[in-house]
Write a protein that binds this DNA or RNA. Structure first.
Length: 697
RNA sequence: GCGCCCGUAGCUCAGCUGGAUAGAGCGACGGCCUCCGGAGCCGUAGGCCACAGGUUCGAAUCCUGUCGGGCGCACCA
């Protein structure tokens, strides 16, 4: 709850510049938070920018500006520093009272409402429905779900979609496993599914199928045939496929629900095919000349899309064209001639600029289907799915699914968004760029601009962890990590990890709380496990490859989710104690706060304790500013680090200052108000990360 | 070869649209429970921010190049 103040300061300073210096177009400038409270609460470095045009020293400009500013509501004083900064000190008591007294806080909240925003779709998770979810999938879901929460915090209407590739090779592989390796009938598979951890079973089977193919390459024919049957809805295969997909998708949903992750809509790829979305999109693409039939060379008989140079990633800045430095030939220096294929080099080069959309056998590729899907999301396809209720989720939230059969009444208006975030790891950047290109080619530059590939690096395993999982050391491997591979069955399953964390956490809870029942320990342990794993997934910036180490992830100390949860629990305990000991509620404690002497907040200057009450309150207020940054940069590590820093600040404060045991009533009251505020803000920050806080732990 | 990402403390990583002294966790070493819970707090040691240029009042941050690493560039998704 600091953004409003920042905006106000910005506007007042801009106005003062215009008045004082007769500048018509004020340069863009920032209102920032100085490194320590001794330098004020907000700082404006605009004098540096003005120095050149005004031909004056920054210091002189800052001083004039400070004088011309007049009073700003909520700002106690403005100081021009010797080097040219404008430092602003807030009216501390009013600031805290505004945020902690319910009536006033409600008014602040209205700041956030800035009219109806355009609808946004976030697509995340999208795990192939043929095996259990692993930690790579978890990073996707954790990032996606946090994005959703952050957008909702900014009051942006969000629709969460989970794309289900029910007609792809991966599902086909498991079908092959059941039919060809295990030789099971559908009924036998059903029985198996009812009597085992089916997603785990398929995990192993999928790895076995991979080996089976390697045993005899001719078996790949079976895979191709199975895939064809799956796409065309041919009887035994498609029926088994539908069963497997349904069971695995439900397993994934259950796993994600443990992590407080839910969805609004499951989009089944099969429905895109059956409802002829692709056929329709294909007509559009052909009519506009976005795809053409290649009549020669390697790709003869394929419908291809030409890849343009500027089809770079969507999430990043739209740059103005860089000047080409004239196409002189780059000398291939020395001996770098490949041992083989020298004659196909140029052909390969030309063909590399074309992407196959429809194979020569007439089967559409993933890209084609995804283009159709993206068009539908923007409401550009002129067609819609039918929908049915798929499941009930936590908090009464209904999960819908697409269908090509009879639809169910009461479905919300899905799709038709003006902005789309596709959460997919960076390896698919190339394909995501194609989506933007297709939109641009068809005359939808704005939609292309709003097709955002939320890209992040993959999760790999540390050698230690791979060894612990029983995977043999790859001696030829020199990389510092081991890549997760569903195909090889190499990875840490989400549920296994959660179980491990929950068990460890429950043990700790039991040790620390001898009076807790086993049930309580289990519940609290679950919450801690979620905190640990979700925080772990968010603390790295998205461009960082996570080398997952099980021992590191199992830690509950230092920069971890449980540390954050513990900070809130401590704050809770204070008010709990207040009630038990003095019979006072939080509201009663804060009664008459604005009339109490605010000496506690007055401590100022360079010698002030950097962990004092004001430092804590001010930091807690920055949440909205942080979320703003997070949504702009899609960098959730910023949120994670902020929350951690706030918890650290609170813990330090907690150790240094008594709250309930403070003798002076006014100090006690202000401290309690600060703690109440920090608890509220920290809880919100945790909620944005999908982390709940147990009452005790 | 082309494209994207990364290179910051012993290890793992933050550092947001350039701003005031480069941070955290872990590990190491040393302290702190008559007082709201020690999943905690305090302190010490540890950095040519890969390298070289450039832009700027100001660069870990922006630009160019070099070196080193990762990932993409399929009639897979």
């Amino acid at each position: 709850m600091i953004l409003g103040v920042q905006r106000l300061v910005h506007d007042r300073v801009a106005a003062a510049i215009q008045r004082q210096f007769a500048v018509t177009d004020v340069p863009a400038f920032t209102v920032e938070v100085p490194p320590g409270r001794a330098l004020g609460d907000l700082a404006v470095p605009v004098a540096f920018q003005l120095a050149r045009t005004l031909r004056k020293a920054p210091r002189a400009i800052a001083q004039e500006l400070a004088g011309a500013l007049g009073t700003i509501p909520g700002v106690a004083r403005v100081v021009a520093t010797p080097n040219g900064y404008l430092n602003l000190y807030l009216d501390r008591p009013a600031f805290l009272v505004d945020r902690v007294v319910p009536a006033r806080a409600a008014r602040l909240g209205e700041d956030l409402d800035r009219g109806p925003s355009a609808k946004t779709i976030v697509e995340h998770t999208a795990i192939n429905p043929n095996k259990a979810a692993h930690i790579g999938h978890l990073r996707n879901a954790a990032l996606g779900d946090t994005l959703v929460r952050a957008l909702q915090y900014r009051r942006i209407p969000v629709e969460v979609q989970n794309y289900i590739d029910d007609t792809g090779v991966q599902v086909a592989d498991v079908i092959v496993g059941f039919l060809e390796i295990e030789r099971l009938s559908i009924d036998e598979v059903r029985r198996l599914a009812d009597s085992t951890r089916f997603d785990y079973y398929c995990w192993d089977l999928y790895a076995r199928v991979t080996e089976w193919y390697e045993g005899d390459k001719a078996r790949l024919e079976i895979r191709a045939a199975t895939l064809r049957d799956l796409e065309h809805g041919a009887r035994p295969v498609s029926e088994l496929g539908a069963f497997i997909v349904d069971r695995i998708v439900r397993a994934h949903l259950k796993t994600m629900a443990r992590l407080n992750i839910g969805y609004d809509l499951l989009t089944f790829e099969g429905d895109i095919l059956r409802l002829k979305f692709w056929a329709h999109a294909f007509d559009i693409l052909k009519a506009q000349g976005a795809v053409f039939l290649q009549t020669e060379g390697r790709l003869e008989g394929c419908w291809v899309m030409r890849i343009e140079d500027e089809a770079d990633g969507g999430a990043d800045a739209a740059e103005d064209e860089s000047i080409e430095p004239s196409g002189e030939s780059i000398e291939p220096k020395g001996e770098s001639i490949e041992p083989k294929g020298e004659s196909i080099e140029p052909v390969k080069d030309a063909a590399a600029r074309e992407k196959v959309i429809v194979r020569s056998n007439g089967v559409v590729t993933y890209v084609g289907k995804d283009i159709a899907n993206q068009f539908w999301k923007f409401g550009l396809l002129g067609r819609d799915f039918r929908y049915h209720r798929f499941a009930d989720q936590a908090g009464g939230r209904t999960l819908w699914a697409t269908t090509s059969l009879e639809g169910e009444a009461g479905a919300p208006p899905f799709g038709r968004a003006s902005r789309i975030y596709n959460v997919i790891d960076s390896r698919q950047m190339y394909l995501q760029a194609l989506l933007g290109q297709a939109l641009r080619t068809l005359g939808h530059p704005r939609e292309a601009e709003n097709s955002i590939h939320f890209s992040y690096e993959m999760v790999a395993l540390s050698h230690d962890t791979a060894r612990q999982l029983g995977y043999p050391e790859d001696t030829g491997e020199r990389k510092p990590f081991v890549e997760v591979s569903g195909r090889k069955g190499l990875g840490v399953k989400v549920d296994d990890l959660l179980d491990l964390l929950a068990e460890k956490a429950a043990g700790e809870v039991a040790r620390r709380n001898p009076t807790f029942s086993a049930e309580e320990c289990r519940k609290v342990g679950d919450a801690i496990a979620v905190g640990a794993i979700r925080y772990f997934m968010l603390k790295f910036s998205r461009g960082t490859l996570i080398v997952f180490d099980i021992d590191e992830a199992l830690s509950f100390e230092g920069e971890t989710g449980p540390y954050l949860q513990y900070a809130v629990v401590r704050a809770n305990n204070i008010f709990q104690k207040l009630k038990e000991r003095d019979g006072l509620t939080e509201a009663a404690m804060l009664e008459g706060l604005e009339r109490a002497s605010a000496e506690e907040l007055a401590d100022e200057g360079a010698e002030a304790d950097p962990h004092n009450l004001w430092a804590l309150v001010f930091e807690a207020s920055r949440l909205d500013d942080v979320v703003d940054q997070v949504v702009r940069s899609l960098e959730f590590s910023v949120l994670a680090k902020y929350a951690f820093g706030l918890a650290q600040l609170f813990n330090a404060f907690y150790h240094r200052y008594s709250i309930l045991n403070e003798e002076r009533a006014d100090r006690r009251q202000w401290r309690a108000a600060g703690v109440a505020y920090v608890r509220q803000q920290l809880s919100r920050a945790l909620d944005l990360m999908g982390i709940g806080v147990p009452a005790r732990m």
